[in-house]
């Protein structure tokens, strides 16, 4: 993970040097063909947690539209069922009006599932989240099980399948000062020691949380064990960035923890291959923007009948409490 980041960094540096010397940028107008309408599924199920699903629409990239109209992307009125070998549950749609009837703590936790940080139900944005009704609160993900997703929307059937693999966690977590002495007064870095299971084909996604923030992801949030199968090794754990942002482009800042962060909580999730492929291609899609040395990357979905992801997480959470 860190290696890849570094290679990318150096290649970009070289390219940047050449670029700075001579290149010239100019704003242009682009006309591209209108896309076909598509439905995007963003759903997950984690061990000990109920399933969560967002349903959204796509939008033209350039055109006379307000791409910031958050509410306009969300689809309501879908019938969503999550089915496992011996059980099934129909999800309930929670929108900004409905959540006002719920306790603040429930709504804050629900928003945090998607990385949104709010303090009360009143701050819940113009979105719809599908999850279990209060009566089905005992329907939670279990390690080793397969979960099928079925969505009915305007006569269309959308399906997918995922699994919750057995989780593993770091043997230990520790911190080190920022490698640049000048910045050591403001930032620090977190490391963990991971013991990868002996069999090949483990896929990881990690989340970080500083104090009371929601769990957040980095721009490279997944890795696999093709390079270090069965080994015990230390790994740099970059701090995630707020949802919807690309994170800092400053090499001295990106991934480093702030000196004000006193509890560093890490969630390490084991995911299956299709789930891993989705995030891996999605992160490459975000990085390949116009780079003349790479080509476009299409995101690999595991959904039939729509785009997006239905992913199971086998997670373990642990914290490092920093004593100032």
């Amino acid at each position: 993970m860190k290696q890849k980041l570094q290679i990318l960094f150096y290649v970009l540096t070289v390219f940047g040097v050449v670029n700075m010397l001579v290149s010239c940028e100019k704003e242009i107008k682009l006309k591209t063909s209108a896309p076909k309408n598509a439905i995007i599924v963003e759903g997950h199920i984690e061990n000990g947690m109920p399933p969560y699903v967002l349903l959204t629409k796509n939008s033209p990239f350039f055109g006379d539209i307000n791409i910031n109209d958050l509410g306009a992307y969300f689809i309501s009125g879908a019938t969503i069922t999550v089915i496992t070998d011996n059980d099934s549950v129909q999800l309930v749609e929670y929108n900004s009006a409905f959540v006002q009837t719920l306790p603040d703590s429930v709504v804050v936790a629900m928003a945090a599932q998607f990385g949104l940080q709010i303090d009360s139900a009143a701050q819940f944005p113009e979105i719809s989240i599908y999850t279990v009704g209060l009566a089905d609160a005992d329907f939670v993900g279990q390690v080793g099980k397969q979960y099928n997703l079925r969505i009915e929307l305007d006569g269309k059937i959308i399906t997918s399948t995922t699994t919750i693999p057995t989780p593993v966690f770091f043997d230990s977590l520790w911190i080190l000062p920022h490698p640049n002495p000048v910045l050591a007064d403001s930032f620090y870095q977190v490391y963990g020691r991971l013991n990868d299971p002996i069999e090949l084909g483990n896929y990881y996604r990690y989340f970080t949380k500083a104090d009371n923030e929601p769990f957040l992801i980095s721009s490279q949030s997944v890795f696999d064990d093709a390079f270090f199968n069965g080994k015990k090794f230390q790994i740099f754990i970059p701090k995630g960035h707020p949802v919807g942002t690309m994170g800092s482009t400053d090499f001295n800042r990106a991934g480093y923890w702030d000196l004000n962060d006193s509890i560093c909580t890490i969630k390490l999730s084991m995911i299956d291959k299709p789930h891993y492929d989705f995030w891996r291609t999605l992160e490459a899609n975000r990085q390949s923007n116009g780079n003349p040395f790479s080509s476009v990357v299409y995101v690999k979905s595991n959904i039939q009948g729509a785009l997006g992801i239905w992913g199971g997480y086998g997670s373990i959470t642990g914290s490092y409490v920093r004593v100032p």
Binding site: A34, E42, N58, S59, Y73
Partner: peptide, 24 residues
């Protein structure tokens, strides 16, 4: 070249979709 013609959101970050290959 291939240019983006659609976008959608995952984890509130945008994802790019593309029109026909090498059509621009």
């Amino acid at each position: 070249i291939t240019l983006p013609n659609e976008l959608y959101f995952i984890e509130f970050g945008f994802v790019t979709g593309y029109g026909g290959r090498n059509t621009y």
